[in-house]
Design a protein around this nucleic acid. Structure first.
Length: 863
RNA sequence: GCCCGUGUGGUGAAAUUGGUAAACACAUCGGACUUAAAAUCCGCCGCUCCUAAUAGGGCUUGCCGGUUCAAGUCCGGCCGCGGGCACCA
């Protein structure tokens, strides 16, 4: 009999057994019958080629849920696939001269081999990569259906353009105004781009996200903020003097503060406002001003220090509510074209930006909101009309003044009245504005899903006929020239128009890779059977990183609504993920050499409490604990850990100690501790395997106590797993294992209870350390495979103790404790408490004012 | 600036309807086993006062205040840290 558990032989053996039994294959709806379904999904990985500890933690968590649900009798779908399109493959192609497809599929093979070692309960039968033509062909079909429904359109838009790589960059890829790869200053370019009308769903996306009770509050808030709903007034200011042609109606503005209209002192246009652009064509000064504004970067730091810049156009508009008053029209750099109408009216007294601008250009500052604590101090403001005693704009609550019919109204009421007035004058209407922009999906890259349209000189934009889908990416591409290889690929690009047959060109833009991940879960649910998709969706539990809190999750919510509305999925709510859990990262200490090089954990050693580079006398600086990353060299390779300790130890460790939503720090000693625990667990079963005792009865008090401990532990673990408190479940298992270990010292009367405990324990361990659980299960005669076994039944009557220990407090401080029957009456408890010798001694004859007895909890005596 | 988290021993943390603060683990230290080491097992482990020791007392969940018989938990006001958004009208 072996004296130690050997993961290297046991782990592959059990994985083979699971595979033979097809244990993790989801049942079809008809096979499942009455079983409830559970779609458990972790965010699918990008095939970078290597698994990292973050993956291990993410997938270990999903596996706990999937295995637990399976044991509880659910029909579980737990699939895996690959989010395979994206820039890294093209970068590899350029650097290593390998085709992006080849690189990607090789990486998938390598990562799949690593995945296999983790012992995850995955249904690989549904695997796909988003770069499979089957998958992106289907995505192209969806695109065309969206287009048919009017959810897709083209428009000119500003983009970040890298002039060296000749490509559009996402905002995240612009670092300090420079391209992250080329280092070249990024230009703003106007390009024709494809867009999805996500803003059509803004209201629905906002109201529904608030109802997702099983999502983290944080993520719901982030989405709500991103959508950014604000109520206000959209109105036009009519011209007072010159009327620019093409803009005869006036200037259209949006405001959330119509209550401050009487404090208006100017109107400001964005440098990118159509009127500004037109004026710049004939006015060199305005053109120069626009150029100056464009020079200021868009990074946070730039905006922080950017001064308010303005240009007086000489145009004037009428004040809508004050007869005869006119306001100057400026172009101002702080007005964004991307929000509202790209033009504002400014009330400097009550908006800090307007205030700064007014001070700089000497424009009037007229307060119209009286703070409740400034009843009398307003005279000075009013007399000068320039708010000279104001240091800053006042944006707080108050009542309106200097405002004719709005005077003395509270802000909210004044807003409503002002909107009504403007509506009556037919100058505008109350509206709702969103910060959310339509989703620009065009990318000038090769390794993505081709947009399935053809540009014809005669017919315009022609969708590729369904029979011609998928529009496959050409294999014979060259990355010699910078930019998108599809543009240079004549035989792929040049086609006949499907409508008129004349020469035409394919669209060379590909879709943003966020499209690929916006509906993959529906593909997992079923390749093409709508009924099966309806059965599985929505995903019951989604697990992934919080970095996707806005983009991926918002896009997926949009996609399900769009697919629902074109009849592609039967999901009335449009919500793809009923439950969402965002897990924390795996972190590690960082190390730096004396000369500032990052060092790997394997490159250092500890001597006499200090750290040195291995084999040298060069001291090492121990730095901050940070997310594992290649650049800081603080990564730990899962393969190495699995080789030394086994997959179960790695899984166990990343779920121990820290709550799942928080970061966990990887430490060598912690991993060793987890490895020790695996051996300790095995030891318990090993000891029992030699003592078969199935027939003995659980009779003695000690055996009954152990039995109670068993049932209590199962109950606690079950609850903890359901509530995503894996660290608590693990703590309970630790305690339980110690209890079982101690029972080894007891007599034969404990054997049955120990065996019962062992059989229960194996099943509770399965979600966390499935291989060890399986090995242990077989050692004590468990039936069949442990991974297939049902969750242990808990006898509720065993959860209640006969007697309970209650603390006795005097004036809120614990002074003694008593042991009383669980069913003892309040009076009995009080009597027992007061008779307690330790308490008698403490009270020493003091008068008792009051005794509070909370049955089963506590006794508090007030003196 | 706005929004959201969060703050508990040397460390990660637990206490989930207001009811014994520090469960469980890591580290350190001590002990058993061993010729020795590894492995394994056991024990101490918030601060402090008093004591030869025992026994015992006081304090303690970022800070200040409040509610309550009772506060890590509820309320008000501060402070620190982390994250998200940000010239969004």
């Amino acid at each position: 009999m072996a004296s130690r558990y050997d993961p290297q032989t046991a782990e592959p053996k059990w994985r083979e057994a699971w595979e033979q039994a097809e244990l993790f294959k989801a049942k079809t709806p008809s096979e499942a019958g009455d079983m409830p379904k559970a779609f458990v999904l972790e965010m699918f990985p990008y095939p970078s080629g290597r698994l990292h500890m973050g993956h291990v933690r993410n997938y270990a968590m999903g596996d706990v849920v999937a295995r637990h649900r399976k044991a509880k009798g659910y029909n579980v779908l737990h699939p895996m696939g690959w989010d395979a399109f994206g820039m890294p493959a093209e970068n590899a192609a350029m650097e290593k001269n390998v085709h992006p497809g080849e690189w990607t599929y090789q990486n998938i093979a390598a990562m799949k081999a690593q995945f296999a070692k983790l012992g995850l309960s995955l249904d690989w039968s549904r695997e796909f990569a988003t770069c499979d033509p089957d998958y992106y062909g289907e995505q192209q079909r969806l695109f065309l259906k969206f287009m048919d429904k009017g959810l897709v359109y083209q428009k000119k838009a500003k983009v970040n353009w890298d002039p060296v790589d000749n490509t559009v960059l996402a905002n995240e890829q612009v670092i300090d105004g420079k391209g992250w790869r080329s280092g070249a200053p990024v230009e703003q370019r106007e390009l024709v781009q494809w867009f999805f009308r996500i803003t059509d769903y803004a209201e629905d996306l906002l109201t529904e996200v608030q109802k997702l009770e099983r999502w983290p509050e944080k993520v719901r808030t982030m989405q709500a903020n991103w959508i950014g709903r604000s109520e206000g007034l959209q109105m036009r200011f009519e011209w007072a003097g010159n009327v620019p042609s093409g803009h005869e109606d006036g200037v259209e503005i949006f405001t959330t503060r119509p209550d401050t209209l009487f404090g208006a002192s100017f109107v400001a246009l964005s440098p990118d406002h159509p009127l500004t652009v037109e004026m710049a064509e004939t006015n060199g000064d305005i053109a120069d001003f626009r150029a100056e504004c464009a020079k200021i970067g868009t990074s946070e730091a730039d905006i922080e220090k950017a001064p308010k810049l303005g240009f007086d156009t000489g145009l004037t508009v009428k004040h809508p509510l004050i007869d005869g008053e006119t306001l100057p029209v400026y172009v101002a750099n702080f007005v964004l074209m991307g929000y509202g109408t790209g033009a504002i009216f400014a009330c400097p007294a009550h908006d800090q930006r307007d205030f700064d601008f007014a001070r700089k250009y000497d424009l009037p500052i007229l307060p119209v909101v009286r703070p409740s604590d400034k009843e009398t101090a307003t005279a000075a403001w009013v007399s000068s009309g320039k708010g000279e005693d104001m240091d800053a704009a006042y944006t707080g609550p108050g009542s309106i003044m200097n405002s004719s019919f709005l005077d003395a109204k509270e802000i909210t009421e004044a807003k409503t009245l002002a909107i009504h007035q403007i509506e009556d004058m037919e100058l505008g209407q109350g509206t709702v504005n969103y910060r959310l922009r339509d989703w620009g999906v065009s990318r000038q890259r090769y390794w993505g899903c081709p947009i399935p349209v053809i540009h014809c000189g005669t017919c315009g934009i022609v969708p590729v006929p369904e029979a011609d889908l998928p529009v496959k990416l050409p294999d014979d591409v060259s990355f010699e020239k910078p930019g998108n290889p599809l543009v240079h690929h004549a035989t792929w690009k040049n086609v006949d128009c499907p409508k008129c047959g004349k020469a035409a060109q394919r669209e060379t833009d590909t879709l943003d890779t966020f499209n690929d991940s916006s509906w993959y879960f529906a593909r997992f649910a079923s390749v093409d059977d709508p009924a099966e998709r309806a059965y599985w969706l929505p995903v019951d539990q989604y697990v992934g990183g919080v970095e996707h809190a806005v983009l991926h999750l918002l896009y997926a919510r949009f996609f399900m609504r769009a697919m629902r509305d074109v009849g592609e999925v039967d999901l009335p709510s449009g919500e793809p993920f009923a439950g969402l859990f965002t897990q924390g990262m795996v972190t590690h200490e960082t190390y730096k050499s004396e000369d500032g090089r990052w060092l790997q954990p394997s490159e250092i050693e500890q001597r006499d409490g200090d750290w040195f580079e291995t084999g040298t006398s060069n001291s090492v600086k121990v730095g901050a604990i940070e997310k594992m990353s290649k650049s800081k060299k603080n990564t730990v390779d899962p393969d190495n850990i699995i080789e030394t300790f086994g997959a179960d130890t790695a899984r166990w460790f990343v779920l121990s100690d820290s709550p799942p939503e928080r970061d966990v720090e990887w430490t060598q000693s912690g991993a060793e501790g987890a490895g020790r625990f695996v051996q300790r667990v095995w030891g318990i079963f090993n000891a029992l395997s030699e003592a078969n005792s199935k027939s003995a009865e659980i009779g003695s008090d000690g055996a009954k106590a152990l039995q109670r401990a068993n049932h209590k532990a199962v109950h606690a673990i079950d609850k903890a797993i359901e509530e995503f408190r894996f660290n608590s479940a693990i703590a309970t298992i630790h305690e339980w294992v110690s209890t079982l270990k101690k029972a080894e010292q007891g007599g034969d009367d404990l054997l049955s209870a120990r065996l019962e405990g062992a059989l229960m324990l194996a099943r509770c361990l399965t979600p966390f350390m499935p291989h060890v659980a399986e090995e242990c299960w077989s050692m004590v005669g468990g039936e069949g495979l442990c991974s297939a076994a049902a969750w242990p039944e808990v006898d509720d009557s065993l959860l209640v103790e006969d007697s309970v220990t209650m603390p006795i407090q005097v004036n809120g401080k614990r002074r003694a404790e008593i042991s009383v029957s669980k069913t003892a009456s309040k009076d009995d408890v009080e009597a027992t408490a007061l008779a307690e010798p330790a308490l008698q001694a403490f009270l020493d004859g003091q008068t008792i004012k009051k005794v509070i007895v909370v049955p089963g909890r506590i006794v508090n005596i007030v003196v």
